[in-house]
Design a protein around this nucleic acid. Structure first.
Lengths: 186, 186
DNA sequence: GTCTATATTCCGATAGAC
DNA sequence: GTCTATCGGAATATAGAC
């Protein structure tokens, strides 16, 4: 696994989260790396390849996070808190999450990237649904209705509020996330 | 006010809501109108002008909707329901809302477009906050905590779930919106 | 006042140099 | 295996025709 390749993925992701998929170019990446834009094509023949790889990397990262939390015996509450912290960090860095950035551009993505993005979202939502459901059974969480519905809503809250925090004049993202968590307390 | 100009705004908005701001071009619009792409520049010298005008049109449309509802003496519940219906309609047409589409591209927008988008969001959030607050006082709604926080959350739910409905395999958007409204019942 | 011919820049991508 | 010179085309935008 080449170091340059990893840097390209890292930079590409960063640009997607700040400028958006259709606004960043290979030149944005190559400039940072001190190369010609065409050099990126050696590692990723097309922009679609790069996009797909970036989503795959994110899936891997998420699954490793979940594994780590399970190994450490995190409670449902601790797991949800850790998940929310990822979003708070993104907000601090002025970034969106990958779902919130690529989701709106879905129609313009390559078929493979679309497929991978769907896969990522399903994985996150399934995990979140299971976590909420288990947490409610253990009386760690309290909420009404279907767990999957609530999972969609909770994820929507995190995704969109990241976007809104750019647009809304004065928004305390961390405080907002805390009220989200508060709402789940029994 | 020229008819062509209005058609350009309408088409431009439609493309923003389906492809995204940075993915649509003047050619997309001119092709539909049977003109050369450069003709659009007569009406909107730059893409930023067009973007700003589209946001302004949306502000106007929203304010007219609110006025109409007040004239007809809509209850808080009816007003909120009407607002949600706009999103259900967008979902049926495979479109996002303007905030959910332009928000992620915020960093790439012209200063004036950014300003107008912020204005639009403030207007919507202020209205929603007032509506929720008044509705709670009249015991039409029931929710915990700060009304503005809840308004941000409610808007986030609508905005992001529109985006998610494209990505998540099986999602019943209308049913989802209904559970959102159910959550506000006393 | 309305639109077209044309310029300019930048994009993603290929062929080939080292 | 790694990167550069270069292409074809599409993007936004200007100057000028009707």
């Amino acid at each position: 696994m080449s170091l340059t390749r990893e840097k390209i993925i890292e930079l590409g992701e960063s640009f997607i989260l700040t400028k958006g998929y259709n606004a960043f170019s290979y030149q944005d990446i190559s400039r940072e790396l001190g190369m010609k834009n065409a050099a990126i094509h050696y590692y990723f023949p097309s922009k679609a390849n790069l996009g797909t790889s970036i989503v795959r990397t994110n899936i891997q990262r998420f699954e490793e996070m979940v594994e780590n939390m399970e190994t450490r015996g995190f409670s449902e509450w601790q797991q949800l808190e850790s998940f929310v912290k990822v979003y708070i960090k993104s907000n601090r860095e002025g970034k969106l999450c990958l779902l919130g950035s690529l989701g709106p551009d879905f129609a313009t993505l390559h078929e493979n990237t679309q497929k991978e993005l769907k896969k990522m979202t399903d994985i996150i939502l399934n995990w979140l649904t299971g976590l909420l459901s288990a947490g409610r059974n253990n009386t760690v969480f309290s909420f009404h209705g279907d767990a999957h519905h609530y999972a969609v809503r909770f994820l929507s809250d995190l995704v969109a509020s990241l976007q809104l925090s750019r647009v809304v004049s004065s928004m305390d993202y961390k405080a907002y996330c805390n009220t989200l968590l508060e709402g789940l307390k029994p």
